[in-house]
Amino acid sequence: MSEAPSTALVTGAARGIGLATTRLFLAEGRRVAMIDRDAEALEVAAAELGDAVLPVVCDVSRPDEVAAMGEKVRAGLGRVDALVNNAGVADFGPIAEHDFARWRRVMETNLDGVFLVSQEMLPDLRASRGAIVNIASISGLRASTLRVAYGTSKAAVIHLTKQQAAELGEHGIRANCVAPGPVDTKLALAVHSREIRAAYHDALPLNRYGSEREIAEAIVFLCSERASYVTGQVLAADGGFEATGIGLPALRG
């Protein structure tokens, strides 16, 4: 009897990096549970990908919805070999304009969601000796203006990943983190002006934004057996942004 194909669960899978990651997993022959709270976008994305995907509508910040999602995934896939916590929200603005409600809207998805989904799928990952990849951001590695909630949430995701790696390794579970830099997504195109894009290009050693596919390649690698001795690590897929610190472009030789 042939072994069942391996599986992955991807949150925030209806678009962007989550959808690109789903496509790469499918290309590897995995089945994928696609999780997103945007029912319409999820339906459209899943319809194009065939029977190897299981779309489940879920707001990862709500414990009851996460519990129901877990049951649907178990019923539909039977096992989970890799978990990608990608769902997140971005809300940028000055510290003085961030009230507690705004702070919580970011934290409940970007941090609470990672915790809740990981906890829900923990028994499954123990059984499969699986992998967790949490998606943080370069904003979790280096501070920047206008990102008091977003950057703090992503820094917390990085530390949560290390906590998971430290404690779950004895169960064969690997936990790693990908921290994307500027990426060409619809969100970035909408909120980054021409001046902002030019400034990023000048600050990046590779002088360009990354693609969704490039970030997905890093995620899928960390979920694979090729990374079987890698855990507790933060991979900055950022064109060299984090390595350069706060150097002035005018001082480059």
Results as ranks from 00 to 15, higher is better:
His159Glu: 13
Val89Thr: 14
Arg62Met: 07
Val157Ile: 09
Pro94Asp: 12
Glu97Gln: 14
Thr152His: 03
Ile135Met: 14
Leu189Phe: 00
Lys72Leu: 15
Ala96Cys: 05
Val183Gln: 00
Leu116Val: 02
Val60Asp: 02
Gln164Ala: 13
Ala75Trp: 02
Ile138His: 04
Ser128Glu: 07
Phe92Lys: 07
Gly181Ala: 06
Ala165Arg: 12
Phe92Cys: 02
His159Trp: 13
Arg129His: 13
Arg74Thr: 03
Thr109Phe: 07
Val157Gln: 08
Val60Ile: 14
Gly70Gln: 06
Val84Lys: 11
Val106Met: 06
Glu108Ser: 12
Thr152Trp: 04
Asp124Cys: 12
Leu83Arg: 08
Ser128Gly: 06
Val148Glu: 01
Ile135Leu: 15
Leu160Cys: 07
Ser128Trp: 07
Gly169Ala: 15
Asn110Thr: 09
Ala149Arg: 12
Ala87Trp: 07
Ser153Leu: 13
Ala156Leu: 09
Val178Glu: 06
Asn110Asp: 14
Gly76Leu: 04
Ile132Leu: 14
Gly140Val: 03
Ile158Thr: 14
Asn110Ser: 05
Gly93Trp: 08
Leu146Asp: 15
Ser153Thr: 08
Gly70Phe: 03
His98Asp: 10
Glu71Gly: 11
Glu120Trp: 02
Gly181Met: 03
Phe100Trp: 15
Gly113Met: 11
Cys177Trp: 11
Ala165His: 12
Gln163Lys: 10
Leu187Arg: 04
Leu125Pro: 08
Gln164Gly: 10
Gln163His: 11
Cys58Ile: 02
Met69Ser: 01
